[in-house]
């Protein structure tokens, strides 16, 4: 089974980084919070997660030494754009560690959002009809927000906590509903549904997310919950990459 771990970690970690940066940007709009938190540590987390994600992506390449040439095809390739945008995102995160300013914080957030959108387009190939749509973008955006709201120091803050609970509910429903929706589709969709439903990482991931949701509801300490969300996202992402059927696997057979 090829779980595409470089892509799993690349997407999950960059999404965590974007999520945290969005919460941080939201906080910038609320002056009462200033001074309560260690912004430097938070932006350091964002930078480290984004960098680890980008590093992980290198393991996906046959020739990582020439990784920079992946930025060549900006005019055609969402993958090129994805690399560039996350590079810029990481760059602003780095600046925010040392010289945080509203401009740089919002710049990071904007590139982060762009990154998620582009990622949603990159991993929605025409060859995988069940996810050749807005599904990846929705999963990625929800994952980013769930990760962001559960991994920040502000996770215990009331507004964030409510938001997180709500987002987790949506993410779990979306992920769990997908295979059941596909069951009503064509052969390729049905077979993908069967693969997802029989995938151990998938159900493991859902379990992690549900557990995190329960903790969020009863207001438990956040670090375990944050890690649970991360684990849930990573496990479900493994299924996303490994068990979503490609049209080429059924050539000669009915679709």
């Amino acid at each position: 089974m090829n779980y595409e771990f470089p892509l799993v970690f690349f997407t999950a970690l960059t999404q965590a980084a974007v999520g945290i940066s969005l919460v941080a940007a939201w906080r910038e709009t609320r002056t009462e919070c200033i001074g309560l938190f260690s912004f430097r540590r938070e932006w350091l987390t964002v930078f480290v997660l984004a960098s680890l994600g980008l590093l992980a992506s290198l393991f996906h390449l046959g020739d990582p030494k020439r990784a920079m040439t992946a930025l060549v095809n900006l005019s055609n390739s969402w993958l090129s754009r994805e690399g560039l945008v996350f590079g810029i995102f990481a760059f602003f995160a780095l600046i925010n560690i040392f010289r945080r300013s509203k401009l740089f914080v919002f710049a990071a957030a904007v590139f982060g959002i762009a990154g998620i959108v582009i990622q949603g387009l990159t991993y929605a190939p025409v060859s995988m009809p069940v996810i050749s749509n807005a599904v990846p973008m929705c999963i990625f955006a929800l994952s980013a927000l769930c990760l962001g709201t559960s991994l920040t120091q502000m996770a215990e803050e009331n507004g964030v906590s409510k938001m997180r609970t709500f987002l987790l509910v949506i993410l779990v429903i979306l992920l769990a509903a997908l295979p059941f929706v596909w069951k009503g589709g064509d052969v390729l969709s049905q077979e993908t549904a069967a693969l997802w439903l029989s995938s151990v990482p998938f159900w493991g991931g859902i379990a992690c997310l549900v557990l995190a949701l329960v903790m969020s509801l009863i207001g438990r300490r956040c670090i375990v919950m944050g890690l649970l969300v991360l684990a849930g996202v990573i496990l479900c992402r493994m299924t996303f990459f490994a068990d979503t059927l490609h049209t080429a696997t059924r050539i000669g057979m009915p679709y």
Binding site: M68, T69, L71, V72, S75, G87, A90, F91
Partner: peptide, 21 residues
């Protein structure tokens, strides 16, 4: 792309020899 690079927009990759790209 070359134009993009020479304009220095691609911040994080600035400083690399453009031949690589």
């Amino acid at each position: 792309l070359k134009g993009l690079l020479s304009a220095g927009v691609a911040g994080t990759i600035g400083g690399l020899p453009s031949g690589l790209l």
